[in-house]
Design a protein around this nucleic acid. Structure first.
Lengths: 198, 198
DNA sequence: GTCTATAGGGAGATAGAC
DNA sequence: GTCTATCTCCCTATAGAC
């Protein structure tokens, strides 16, 4: 494992800048000149690290999935329902607590050109597969054919939190994860009892 | 009410094209030249209808909300829980069955420049307010302070369907609305029984 | 209401010096 | 690994003819 201490290399600074710009501006509006300026280099120097704008953003999107996968795989909880809650918390953690890569992926992936998306699909599939397996494990009664749809609805709630949730607010990420998990498992009637029940 | 029959005026064709391009490409990647070509006119002529690119897209985003509001207000159901389901169905209808304006709003709003977003916020608030009132009506036990969060989680599930749902698939919009409604009210255990229960 | 022509700026990408 | 300089292309927007 490389010693990535103190002064981040140019390539890394460009990637970090790209992730943040993606979240705020989307794919097309983010220019290599901006990224270079953010990273403290000139536009032409970006091409020493990446062959094209597309290759650069493929790296960002893939890193965004890596962060999600690492968060997912770090969960070790025995009880099925508790494990589900831990994975929801881990997914939200990837979105808000481990840099901008996952947030960039979730917000900008669908606005990226088809060639870029195609290079990222395999890694996306891998993450989705993990969740399908988790659902199969936690909800044995859920038909296999319904797992993708169920996952998509849960992802929809989790991923759109980046449009409105802020770590600086009064609602903590633990609270949010607990509410989403409860809402997902038992519906609205149960989810709003969470805070008072503790 | 204007007689908008057969040949759509230039302005209308430009707006239609903008809504579709927004869904597929996002804000920054959509150029006035494309819209003009789609509408069968030249780029310079766009400025006869709109003062700027921003003004054009403000019109698209606002129309997207109008479609949602019209769908919402068309619901007339007495039973509270059934009414909620009807509103979910109406929201999905606005996304998939009444042109591309609502889909454009939902996908591209957050990638639009701040000046554009600011002009659309009041109409967005109006729609969100309708939903908060609906939640208050259907779920009297839900604390008022929890309505926005509850609404946001439901919107997350509904709005991200545009990333994967297609009218041409085997799952109908009625089915999808029923599943989302059931999942929202009673959680996962109830939602996957819907199809077999009919 | 649409056209042509064009101004002025900024985009992605390349070449070669240091 | 970064720089400067530059090519080519396309963008938004404007002016004025029809």
């Amino acid at each position: 494992m490389a010693d990535t201490a103190l002064p981040a290399p140019g390539r890394q600074r460009v990637l970090d800048a790209a992730a943040e710009r993606l979240v705020q501006q989307g794919y097309a509006a983010t220019t290599l000149r901006q990224l270079a300026a953010d990273a403290g280099i000139k536009a032409g120097s970006v091409y020493h690290h990446f062959a094209s704008k597309e290759e650069l953003f493929i790296a960002v999107f893939n890193r965004g999935i890596e962060v999600m996968v690492e968060a997912f795989d770090s969960v070790e909880v025995a009880d099925p329902l508790e494990r589900l809650g831990a994975h929801v918390r881990a997914h939200l953690g990837a979105l808000f607590e481990h840099g901008s890569y996952t947030a960039a992926h979730v917000t900008a992936f669908f606005t990226a050109p088809p060639e870029v998306r195609a290079e990222v699909v395999p890694q996306r599939d891998e993450y989705e597969h993990r969740w399908n397996d988790l659902l199969a494990d936690v909800f044995p009664d859920l038909p296999a054919g319904r797992r993708p749809l169920t996952r998509l609805l849960l992802f929809g709630s989790m991923n759109t939190t980046i449009e409105w949730f802020h770590l600086s607010g009064s609602l903590t990420l633990d609270d949010l994860a607990a509410i989403i998990t409860s809402q997902f498992i038992d519906g609205i009637h149960a989810s709003h009892l969470i805070r008072s029940a503790r």
